[in-house]
């Protein structure tokens, strides 16, 4: 910048420029992420109330004790993990299948790509409302079609039945986020070297063998990264359950639980403890996942 002064070296001036250009972003990231994270952690050891967060005293691990003694918390944890494992598995398999399908050189695949992008890009709230209406027990199109087909006699209460509501939420999530999987895997597919397939075809390697011994291993890192992104998303799922079945304990996720304690019960202490627990849970899952799949270098990409 203004390194006219004699003492400042040109390199030093450039380093100063770097910090100057970074400062606003660092300030915002601190204000919006690091500081709140620290405060949440701190609040988890206090008896603060949301209405007057300035008056609190430290209560040690009481909030965590209360949290871990609440069966509803553990049910939320189970719900979240169940939802995450099942939906991400289905999305991965389905995403891989559709991606391989779209990857064949055939007219119309550009249109297909655009179409599958739509469910992912609209608000989850809208998707939830849309499916809620389609799954309506009396007037929903799904029940109507099933009745026409003679599969059921009276309408199924999809989102009110405690055995069905979780599968329904998983199904809607699959509808929403499979496109994300497809697109990331497609990007991975487009980076595979063409040459090896030609070589393999000439060598007479059968198609399924090409898939298992060439495509899958080469694609594995792309899939691993896509799954990580989905895992992080699924573990903090909030909107879908909230709108589709807001009061049901059967689909309460840890995010919903924590917000409920914090906002509805105004209990900043236990709410923060739950938030912190969610943070640690996700950090742990990420750390294990990244280590197991050795993704650190790929993620850094530097």
């Amino acid at each position: 910048m203004m390194s006219g002064s004699r003492s400042a070296g040109l390199r030093q001036a450039r380093v100063r420029t770097a910090w100057l250009f970074l400062a606003p972003s660092l300030l915002v990231l601190t204000g919006v992420a690091l500081w709140p994270l620290g405060r949440t952690f701190l609040f988890s050891f206090t008896d603060a109330l949301l209405t007057e967060p300035d008056f609190y005293s430290y209560v040690g691990f009481d909030n965590y004790r209360a949290l871990f003694e609440d069966p509803l918390w553990w049910q939320s944890v189970r719900n979240t993990l169940y939802f995450t494992v099942i939906s991400v598995s289905i999305e991965t398999v389905l995403g891989l299948t559709i991606a391989l399908l779209l990857n064949s050189h055939i007219a119309g695949r550009g249109v297909m790509r655009a179409i599958i992008l739509i469910p992912w890009s609209i608000p989850v709230v809208v998707s939830a409302r849309m499916w809620q209406w389609m799954l309506h027990d009396q007037f929903g199109i799904v029940n109507h079609v099933l009745k026409l087909a003679g599969l059921i006699e009276t309408g199924v209460a999809w989102t009110a039945n405690s055995a069905l509501v979780m599968p329904v939420i998983i199904a809607v999530d699959v509808w929403i986020t499979t496109p994300f999987m497809v697109l990331l895997i497609l990007a991975g597919l487009s980076m595979l070297p063409r040459g090896i397939y030609e070589a393999a075809s000439i060598d007479g390697v059968p198609a399924w063998k090409q898939f298992t011994s060439l495509t899958l291993p080469l694609l594995a890192p792309s899939i691993a990264v896509a799954v990580l992104f989905r895992l992080l998303d699924a573990l903090r799922m909030f909107d879908l359950s909230y709108v589709l079945s807001s009061n049901s304990d059967d689909t309460k996720t840890v995010s919903i639980y924590a917000r409920e304690v914090l906002v509805n019960f105004q209990d900043m202490g236990v709410g923060s403890a739950a938030s912190t627990a969610v943070f640690l849970m996700i950090a742990l899952v990420t750390a294990i996942y990244v280590t197991v799949f050795r993704l650190n270098r790929r993620l850094m990409g530097v």
Binding site: T40, P53, M268
Partner: peptide
């Protein structure tokens, strides 16, 4: 930071 779950920031962010 891009991996932080939003819920983990909620009470701190509320205060901020």
């Amino acid at each position: 930071v891009s991996m932080f779950p939003q819920i983990a920031l909620l009470s701190g962010l509320f205060e901020m």
